[in-house]
Write a protein that binds this DNA or RNA. Structure first.
Lengths: 344, 344
DNA sequence: GGCTGAAGTGGGAGCGCTCCCACATCGATG
DNA sequence: CATCGATGTGGGAGCGCTCCCACTTCAGCC
């Protein structure tokens, strides 16, 4: 135990102390701290010096109490299906969000919601307006959270949307377009029996990817065949099972478009287990172009969506909505890009 | 614009309002809210009903102002080397931390520190004591943050430690023991020329893993050969380059112990490029047993460390330290376990 | 020289809470 | 029956800040 631990830690200086030292009033110090222009150069200099000498840092709680701002935003990640660690998508969003937030003085609260109990806790938290805004990732159609955000009139931005009529702000990738590009690519490689393992169809993104798949086939005048569609859930396991199903139903299948990289990784596994070679026998395309795509054997052709950029854009939209809660929403759709690797 | 948007949102009820409604004083409501036992059953019931009727939620800012607690802890992740998304380790820690925190009323602040500027911002933030405690992940020997935490006497728990004399609380896995088990396993498989690709040696964990490797060889009376040691940095790229180096120096090498799964994934790639078969020509063992280990081809034998559990334990230690800042530290070392898969 | 308005400034009020002290109230005790 | 501690209770004070209003100062103008 050090001697230093014994003596009371020097109390943090208050705004009042700064004012006294600078020989000005509290109001002036407050103005300087908050960057108001209505301060003379002389007063500003005196205050700034006093702040430096005293090592003054504003007390956030006191500020919040009167402004009823919190200077914090929550990033909400439902972890019902996917684990954080197996979903590079989440991590990339977090990275983007954090990077964009670093330029502001907002703090990032990370809220993982695993079950009903935790969702209720979050509901209370949001109701108490303990954050200035919310970023919500992985939106399901029946998710009650977006509605809550609407009711609370809390600034919010979604990654994804519930439907095309989504009233809240959102940022998402051109899912249908990406899927279309992927399937066209497979067609151009001469594949004819192209299957798909979808994502969870209670998510608009997964629905859009399936729609893009169908559209590309329709455009090429390939007759639709529901036997070529297996339902997954974005997980590896779902991909594996979906692929098995597909192989059982259509042994002649020569390509598969997977709704996520993880799904594709599962599909690769199922194909390997079934003795099919990739890409010779069956070509595989994923979606996300996450780290996973580079690590599989063979590396995955995948539809790149700018996930980190999406995180950044979400923050930018949120900031605007916080700045002027004018209720007009920002809805951004980002382009995707096909990255071709050995799997196709 | 809905009509509801026009009318002023009902102001949140205050403690005072609850007191009035329950026909008691502010003090009594405060006692009920904070679970003090010094309240009669009758008063408690009245207050609880009033709270329910009014939908009262305490104002955190006001509470913080007087208690100078913040009810938040920061999880600090330096992102200098590794990206969040490529490091399942970080994600698993986050998951554990979040899960354990869910049972408390503490909030989780996620702070990714990418560069000097962001570190300074964090320093200011911690100096202002805007959190009740700090969890620090990925500790490097020359990291200035632990020292800052010591000086501030801010409750803190590290994942890992700077050295064996670490004065702060920490949670870590038995790195040396795990490495030893891995190398013994390789020896037991009849491997004789066993190399290693280390982690960044400015991290105690990486040093310990290297020490464990050496120890196992020494115990088996295998003469040490520095040609079998390549330096990596826990990344895939480092693993790939390290493996190439090793192959160049010791073409007869028949096994390699990698300081992380990512490193091992890189090593697998280098081996494939060099035309070596795994495990026939060269056996590979990783460390962490993260999701990566299951996804490589072939799946990796790996030393499992209970990463998520580490996150949970960090929180528990931190809670105790916050509860009674008695300066006596908790230092926990968790056992590791070898998980054998196809790569060895 | 008096008047006006712009530009700064000081400080009271009050945000919603906890802390703490003074003050009941009441059963047990000598 | 007075006295006493134990058990609850009400409410003043004050946490550190921003907001806002009243006030001063002074340049510019008729």
């Amino acid at each position: 135990m050090t001697p230093a631990a014994q003596q009371p830690p020097a109390a943090r200086p208050t705004l009042e102390a700064v004012a006294a030292r600078a020989g000005v009033g509290r109001g002036t110090v407050s103005r300087v701290v908050n960057g108001s222009p209505k301060v003379s150069a002389k007063a500003r200099a005196a205050v700034e010096q006093a702040i430096a000498e005293l090592g003054y840092v504003p007390n956030q709680a006191a500020r919040s109490l009167v402004t009823s701002r919190t200077d914090a935003v929550a990033l909400v990640v439902p972890e019902s299906v996917a684990k954080l660690s197996s979903e590079p998508y989440f991590s990339d969003i977090i990275t983007g969000v954090s990077a964009e937030l670093a330029g502001t003085d907002l703090q990032l609260l990370l809220v993982l919601v695993r079950d009903e109990r935790e969702r209720e806790r979050l509901t209370r938290y949001l109701t108490a307006r303990r954050v200035d805004g919310v970023l919500l990732v992985s939106v399901h159609q029946d998710d009650p959270l977006p509605e809550l955000l609407e009711q609370l009139e809390l600034p919010a931005v979604l990654a994804g949307r519930r439907s095309e009529q989504e009233p809240l702000s959102y940022v998402l990738a051109d899912n249908a377009g990406g899927a279309r590009a992927a399937v066209r690519h497979l067609l151009s490689r001469g594949r004819t029996a192209i299957g798909t393992v979808t994502g969870p169809l209670d998510m608009e993104g997964a629905v859009a990817r399936l729609a893009g798949y169908r559209q590309a086939l329709a455009e090429a005048a390939v007759p639709a065949d529901e036997g070529l569609v297996a339902h997954g859930d974005f997980t590896e396991r779902g991909g594996r099972e979906g692929m098995r199903e597909l192989l059982a139903r259509r042994p002649d299948l020569d390509a598969v478009f997977c709704a996520s990289d993880l799904t594709a990784a599962g599909a690769l596994r199922a194909l390997r287990e079934a003795g099919r070679r990739v890409p010779q026998d069956v070509a595989v395309v994923g979606f996300d172009d996450s780290v996973v795509a580079r690590h599989t054997e063979p590396p995955l052709t995948s539809v790149r969506q700018p996930t980190e950029e999406m995180g950044r854009l979400m923050v930018r939209s949120l900031l605007k909505e916080i700045a002027q809660p004018g209720r007009f929403r920002r809805q951004t759709v980002l382009p995707t890009e096909l990255v071709v690797r050995e799997s196709s």
